[in-house]
Nucleic acid binder design. Sequence first.
DNA 1: TCTTCGTATGAGTGTAACATCATATGAAGA
DNA 2: TCTTCATATGATGTTACACTCATACGAAGA
Lengths: 114, 114
Amino acid sequence: MKRGLSDACNLFFLTLSNPTRLAILELLRQRDMSVTEITTALDQEQSMISHNLTPLVRCGLVFVEQHWKERIYSLNHETMEPLFQIMSDHFDRYCAKKAGEINCTTTTKKLANI
Amino acid sequence: MKRGLSDACNLFFLTLSNPTRLAILELLRQRDMSVTEITTALDQEQSMISHNLTPLVRCGLVFVEQHWKERIYSLNHETMEPLFQIMSDHFDRYCAKKAGEINCTTTTKKLANI
DNA sequence: TCTTCGTATGAGTGTAACATCATATGAAGA
DNA sequence: TCTTCATATGATGTTACACTCATACGAAGA
């Protein structure tokens, strides 16, 4: 990562650090969806979904296409699948998972390598 | 990414969505450093660096070891290098970079694939 | 053109994260 | 034990983000 991209990274990760947007990404991982479908699936306000879709599109994490009256959102699988994989690997290796709670035990290198 | 890890992902990305912490990660990418070294290199307050190191360690993005009076922080290369790579690829493919500003042009799938 | 559907946008408000300042802790040497 | 160095912690004011509510916009059908 070259210098000067920090702002972009910041925005990228800021976009990802939101429960609603993460839920949208998980949904779109399964299949493309319209705003109404996402709204229904997540049982949230339509305006909230729209507001959260905006930064996802702006960062290129999801794409959007107009189909008749609907706007169909789709995941950027090329970026997101490897990202999901890294997350999964990281949590497996460095964080103890028990019953939904996250508890990183990596305070030292030695502990981390166990 | 299995369900239930959303909170962990949220925390993970929240930790990454901060200019100071991103700068620390870029620094540690080069070599291990003490708090004082990081503070000097980034020309910031020591307490600020300490405050920002805490979440990085908690998420397992950096490790820490005590060496005499100093605490040496090191990057979790195993997680961070592939992450840096994804970011780099993503920006190359989906975002127009010009002179430090970020400008994603991916409003539709077709545009994105150009 | 009037209505309905699907979606986006804007204003207002509460909350959470951040930087800062001050202080505490802990280890090592004098 | 007193001082100094290295780092961590706590409290506080401000900023920025996210949710909600209301409304606007655009497309398609009647």
